[in-house]
Design a protein around this nucleic acid. Structure first.
Lengths: 208, 208
DNA sequence: TCGCAATATGACAGATTGTCATGTATTATA
DNA sequence: TATAATACATGACAATCTGTCATATTGCGA
């Protein structure tokens, strides 16, 4: 977490720093992010940076919080569109990402770039708070009647897997954009798998 | 890929180097692996290291190949036990990992330590070759009659998700070992989800 | 024995990180 | 207002890394 000092910073200075951070974060992988380059670009002395953040990880965690908030609101909109159907979410989100929006919405393209650079960076844990995976604003829009079990715990599990599917699809697509159609197909297959299960219809354990 | 020179190295020297690598790899995260420490411990001059590997990533990739091979053989055994049931695999593998084996089998405990240090490091992509996720030796042992669709492509998807479930379970457990029982419960929930689907029984799209 | 090719080696340049002692501004207080 | 206390700024510095390269050494065929 940034220090109190950071939040007391004059608007202009803070913006300069944050902008430089994003510029670095969207240029290289987390591993290769250089505080040196950031402070140079932002014209912030070295010592000052460490007055605000304890280290690189601290910085990145802070920046991702913003993104997370945005991402949740995005998914919320999508969930509403699907009328609370968690299983329909990945494909709809995927189309949203890949389609027009992904190029025009600056926040979203930022997000995609990060996902791309960091090879999927585990959307699930990125989203998840300590106990629940499914953030409150999303849980509110879920229609439990569309789930086999109505508990939130169950919705958590579904959501977690759905996010994994989504993240993988995005990464795959940006690794090889010519394969978009196949990736979409694969994503459909996976969400169906989550929805209907991978066992044959009428399968009971121990039957075969 | 290591250079040809590396493979021509005298047995003893190569072992010294590899041992030092593993010792480092199981001590700190990939990000923090230091070539400096490795060569110091192995008593290999700096220049020599770069004669063998192009950089850190090259080294790590090489070491993981070994692990991958081992891991596949492990999973193969487990799949045979489950009589080719991909959905039963994660839970059985989990018990295998957490139980006695995980402590005694040196290769396995190595593997677990890596998983722990690197927060799940994406078992899926770690496993996956270019086209198929499901390696041949595993595909051979899968019983397609236990899948909704018999294609290998379908088995790939199931396998990929099953691995995600497994990896997450292992990471969770080592983050907080007191929660083992809950994690196991969660893993059961997830594999059931994969097997039977998360939609209510008899659910058809557009019904509600 | 000569000479070429493969290896070995460690000094070096370039970069990065986190700390800290020393300033400077701001605010509270007598 | 004068003074003390606190908060903040700053850049030099030590410690660490990494990748390269010129030079030495070894092995081996002619």
């Amino acid at each position: 977490m940034p220090t109190a000092t950071f939040f007391r910073l004059p608007e202009e200075k803070r913006k300069r720093l944050i902008d430089a951070c994003w510029s670095e974060l969207t240029r290289v992988r987390f591993t290769d992010v250089s505080i040196n380059r950031i402070i140079t670009q932002a014209h912030i002395p070295r010592g000052s940076f460490y007055q605000y953040f304890s280290d690189k990880e601290d910085l990145i965690r802070y920046l991702l919080e913003d993104l997370q908030e945005y991402f949740v609101s995005l998914l919320r909109g999508i969930l509403v569109e699907t009328r609370g159907d968690l299983f329909a979410m990945p494909l709809m989100a995927y189309d949203h990402f890949i389609g027009h929006q992904g190029r025009t919405d600056p926040m979203l393209s930022l997000f995609i770039k990060l996902l791309h650079l960091n090879q999927g960076m585990d959307l699930q844990s990125f989203m998840g708070g300590p106990k629940h995976f499914l953030p409150d604003p999303l849980w509110e829009t879920v229609d439990p009647a569309k789930l086999r079990q109505n508990s939130r715990a169950y919705a958590d599990q579904v959501f977690h897997l759905a996010c994994a599917v989504l993240a993988f699809a995005v990464v795959e697509t940006f690794q090889d954009p010519t394969q978009t159609a196949q990736v979409r197909e694969m994503t459909k297959m996976r969400t169906d798998l989550l929805r209907y299960g991978g066992a044959p219809e009428g399968y009971k354990e121990g039957t075969l």
